[in-house]
């Protein structure tokens, strides 16, 4: 089957004291090539765990992830990742970070140079190519991370709260960039976020997860990402149906959080 398949994945962490945490239970999903799926859920519901399994950094205790019919057994350049922060190589310049993937894979120099220039143009960092990354602002650093991930031309991009550390304004701009890159490159993207608004705006599909054990609670198909490509973000976010969806999901997550809190009280 084409695309990314998450097939009955369960993950049970065994703690040092012998206790067990059911981080994921029977999660199944199918992403067709080119789909953008946003994942929302209260803290601790297993979003990062799911991403780590798809990324190949964790082996699930049951089930499997498949990309284009092949089982995921470890990290691979077909699945790029973008983390919240701190994953850039601070001993390298911007250009060296972006070219890291192709360099590791032995792509010819001339080709790497072209790729880097093209990607730095895309993320509007051309003038910063030779700056060390630690001299860049948080938003610029995340643009470098996006460019670095794209340099390898992965089939799937996994993002764990990629915009989580940015201020509201930078964040809105970056959302536009993510949409643009998604449309231009046609990548399959899983994007984890804590922001309901961001999930609604970026997710063609939106999955809301519930905790204990981590599972899929509800799924939505959304029109906003499609409108957002080239459209005006502010007016889309002000639409009545956008606001209605936002409120519905917010109260849903709010309820889950309440449940967690009362559960914690009794435990």
């Amino acid at each position: 089957m084409d695309g990314l398949v998450i097939d009955n994945v369960s993950m049970v962490f065994t703690l040092p004291n012998g206790g067990q945490v059911h981080a994921l239970e029977d999660v199944s999903l199918h992403l067709k090539p080119g789909e953008l799926m946003a994942v929302l859920g209260p803290s601790g519901c297993g979003k990062t765990t799911l991403l780590n399994i798809v990324g190949g950094f964790l082996a699930p205790t049951a089930g499997q992830a498949l990309l284009n019919g092949h089982q995921v057994t470890g990290p691979h350049k077909e699945r790029g990742v973008v983390f919240q922060q701190g994953a850039l190589f601070e001993w390298m310049t911007v250009a060296q970070n972006v070219s890291f993937g192709p360099r590791m894979c032995g792509v010819p120099r001339a080709e790497i140079k072209q790729t880097v220039r093209r990607l730095l143009d895309t993320v509007a960092l051309r003038d910063f190519a030779d700056k060390p990354v630690y001299q860049l602002s948080g938003g610029m650093q995340q643009r470098v991370a996006l460019a670095r991930c794209l340099a390898n031309d992965p089939d799937v991009i996994l993002m764990d709260e990629p915009l989580g550390a940015l201020d509201a304004l930078t964040r809105e701009k970056m959302q536009g960039l993510v949409l643009k890159l998604w449309k231009e490159t046609g990548k399959t993207i899983i994007l984890i976020t804590h922001s309901v608004e961001e999930a609604l705006f970026l997710g063609e599909r939106l999955v809301v997860m519930a905790p204990r054990p981590g599972r899929i609670h509800k799924e939505y198909a959304l029109p906003f990402a499609e409108q957002g490509v080239g459209g005006d973000a502010r007016s889309i976010k002000a639409q009545p149906d956008f606001i209605a969806a936002r409120e519905e999901i917010l109260s849903m997550i709010w309820e889950m959080e309440e449940e967690i809190m009362s559960g914690a009280d009794m435990g």
Partner: peptide
Amino acid sequence: QISKVHAAYSLGASKFQVLRYVILP
């Protein structure tokens, strides 16, 4: 940071390359 190592592997680096270009620096 484990995220740096993960990022490097996902960019196609081999074990030796992770050692040479990530862990060493």
